[in-house]
Structures are given as C-alpha cells and as structure tokens.
C-alpha cells in the first residue's frame, strides 16, 4: 500500500473549497491510487479551524489542508489582496488575480515548509437586504452584518451601520428585524434561507474570497518525483475546474434566491456602487502601506493583466 494523507477542510464538502478539494482528491486517487491515497476530512472533522491549518500543515500534524487566504494575513499581510474591496469586477478578473498572486503566496508557503498546490474561489459577496440598494440613500444607516475588519470599515465609510454578529446569530437577528442586511455570497444567503426575512440581493462583487490548498513540504518531497510532478499538474487542473465551477455555483445561488421570490439585481445601482468603491479605498491604501514594495508590485502586475 502507498502513503495515506489526510486533507483538512473546516467547511463542508458542498462549498467551493470542498468541491475543489474533492475534485483534486478524486483525480489524485485515480492516477496515483497505488502510491498515494488522500482522504478528505471536511466539516472540521480533524478539529482544526481554517486559521489553524497553516501551522498544522507546517508541523506535519496534517499533510494537506485548504485555508481561507485572508485568515493568513496575520502571517503575511500580502495574503489580504484577495480581500481588498471591489478589486476584481468579475470572476475572470478574480482568476487573473489568483494567477498573479499565487506565486507570491507560493513563496510564503515555501518559506514556512509548505507547498501551495492549488486555489479555489468562493462566489462573490453581495448585499442581501430588505429594501433594494437603489441609491446612495439606501446605504445610509443600513444595519448590515459584515464578516471582518476590512468589510466593517468599508461599510462604515459608505455610511452604513455595520454590525459584528456571529454567523449563528444572523438568523435570529434577521427574524427580529434587528438586521437590515448582510454582506455575503448568494449561496451563503441561501444556506440560511434568507428569503424568509430579506427580499433583495444585489451582486456587488465586493470580493471573492479565495482558498489555498497547501501540503507539508516533507510529506510532498517524500513522494516519488513523478507523483510530485503529477500533483502539480492536477493542482493546475483543479484551479481551472474551480474557476469554472464557481460560475455555476454563483448562477445556481442566484437562481435559488430568485426561485424563492427574491429580487436579484445583477447590475448594481451606479451611484451606490461608486459610493461603496470609494469607501473601499482606505483598505487598499492601508494594505499598500503594510505590504510595501511587494504589495505595490503585485497590484501593478494585476492591473497590467486586467488592462
């Protein structure tokens, strides 16, 4: 029998990082099943939260894991590039951002004894709300649930009243009307049946969170060279798969919301969008100041590619 790897995922298999991981794993087991067997451990089965994966993979506690990139910004702020508000305007641009940023990510993983194998995006975040976001006025005082410090700051800059609420508390807060809105992807909203409380979704491309799948370098290098080479190839296939799949997940999410009678706005109101975009500038300035030359180079690379 060959080597056995565990692949940790904090989230369940039906979400994007889990789909990508399972695509990767099935291809690996297909091609190298006799030399390497990878077991998907979703739903946080191994006890790790996403933020724990970096150290867990580095120390070899688990061989491989998929990690929300922005949770690594405590290690290196460069990872926060995928979290900059309104940097990418489409799924194609998000793929370009991944292609630009992943060599930078790869170097950081390398530095900490790990190998970056592939990435996957999650569908873009937009605003689920009671009333349509059809003007700058609609943002004023909007009690919106945000998910991290950058989104909180951006929404506050845009004139909203962002609230920090645990994800598990979102539904009760929506049901009592204490929340007017939340910033998350269409399928995120569908997962808590947000149509019970909210009737609008505006696709803002706030950001596309991305996930890195990384493996312990010692475990990787212990594999025969042809398997290592194969894993890198399958990693590349997985990236292609994930950025195609996410379009379907996005459309399916939007369709689910529409099926449940929500009003889905694919093109945001230009004035409201401009307001949010300028509110996000702070985050970009601050990110550039903490990441220095590397950050500036990454951003310049990306902007050159987008054209």
């Amino acid at each position: 029998a060959g080597t056995k790897w565990d692949f940790a995922d904090e989230y369940v298999a039906s979400l994007m990082p889990g789909r990508a991981a399972n695509f990767f794993i099935s291809r690996v087991n297909e091609r190298f099943g006799d030399q390497l067997e990878v077991v998907y451990q979703g739903g946080g089965a191994l006890g790790y939260k996403s933020a724990d994966h970096f150290d867990a993979v580095e120390t070899g506690a688990v061989q491989a894991a998929t990690t929300l990139v922005t949770q690594l910004n405590g290690i290196n702020p460069l990872f926060n590039v995928s979290n900059l508000p309104f940097l990418v305007k489409s799924i194609e641009e998000s793929r370009l951002l991944w292609d630009t940023a992943s060599p930078y990510y790869g170097d950081i993983f390398e530095e900490y004894g790990q190998v970056l194998l592939f990435g996957s995006p999650s569908p873009p975040a937009g605003i689920h709300s009671k009333n349509p976001i059809d003007s700058v006025e609609a943002l004023r005082g909007l009690r919106i649930r945000t998910f991290d410090s950058i989104s909180t700051r951006t929404m506050a800059n845009a004139g909203c009243a962002p609230l920090q609420i645990a994800w598990t508390d979102v539904v009760p807060q929506l049901s009592t009307g204490a929340l007017d809105a939340m910033l998350t992807s269409a399928d995120g909203g569908a997962s808590i049946s947000c149509w019970d409380y909210l009737s609008n979704f505006t696709l803002f491309f706030y950001s596309l969170a991305s996930y890195c799948a990384h493996v312990n370098r010692d475990a990787f290098e212990a594999l025969p060279p042809e398997v290592q080479e194969g894993l890198r190839e399958i990693g590349q296939e997985t990236v292609d798969f994930a950025w195609t799949e996410v379009i379907e997940v996005l459309n399916a999410g939007l369709a689910t919301l529409e099926e449940h009678g929500m009003n889905v706005q694919r093109e945001p109101n230009p004035a409201a969008f401009a307001q949010l975009q300028s509110a996000g500038n702070d985050a970009r300035t601050e990110w550039l100041s903490t990441t220095g030359d590397a950050g500036a180079a990454l951003l310049a690379d990306f902007e050159a590619k987008v054209g």
Binding site: D55, N73, G74, I75, D148, S149, T152, R153
Partner: peptide
C-alpha cells in the same frame, strides 16, 4: 512560533 514570527491577531485593532 507566533512570538518569533510576529504574527498578528487581526481584529479591528490588530
């Protein structure tokens, strides 16, 4: 590890 690396806890105030 977190001491030597200077890892940050990233909340509103890091």
């Amino acid at each position: 590890r977190s001491f030597n690396r200077g890892s940050l806890a990233t909340y509103m105030i890091s």
